[in-house]
């Protein structure tokens, strides 16, 4: 299976406000609000941790979600955010970064 690596675009600004993650695309000022699960994925999007690992470590345990459903939801979220250019998707880990646990 090909792994997916995700990284936050440098062309966005984000902030937690009252427990909600607000993201703005600096390119066109579009605003996004993430729920808790999406926020957990967003925060873990370091470009070097595989998406499957992010889902397992940040979603399945914390939110008591079935792993297959959680991964499917995560893929959908990643496609959506990538489509807006605020998340970068790759089949390889980003260079110049070390995996952190």
């Amino acid at each position: 299976m090909t792994e997916t690596y995700i990284a936050r675009s440098s062309d966005v600004a984000s902030r937690m406000l009252g427990g909600e993650m607000i993201i703005m695309s600096a390119a066109d000022s579009t605003l996004f609000t993430l729920n808790q699960q999406a926020t957990a994925i967003w925060n873990a999007a370091d470009g070097v941790t595989p998406l499957s690992e992010i889902v397992e470590s940040k979603i399945c345990g914390a939110f008591e979600v079935d792993p297959a459903v959680a991964y499917q939801d995560a893929e959908e979220l990643v496609r959506d955010l990538a489509g807006h250019g605020i998340l970068l998707v790759s089949e390889r880990p980003a260079e110049g970064r070390e995996v952190t646990s």
């Binding site: 062309d11 902030r15 406000l17 009252g18 427990g19 909600e20 607000i22 703005m24 600096a26 390119a27 000022s29 605003l31 609000t33």
Partner: peptide, 20 residues
């Protein structure tokens, strides 16, 4: 709520520059 306040404020800010 802070998030709603932030979103609403952002829609009402005057800013004109095309600069990320």
């Amino acid at each position: 709520a802070p998030a709603e306040a932030g979103r609403t404020l952002l829609r009402n800010i005057l800013f004109f520059a095309e600069d990320a």
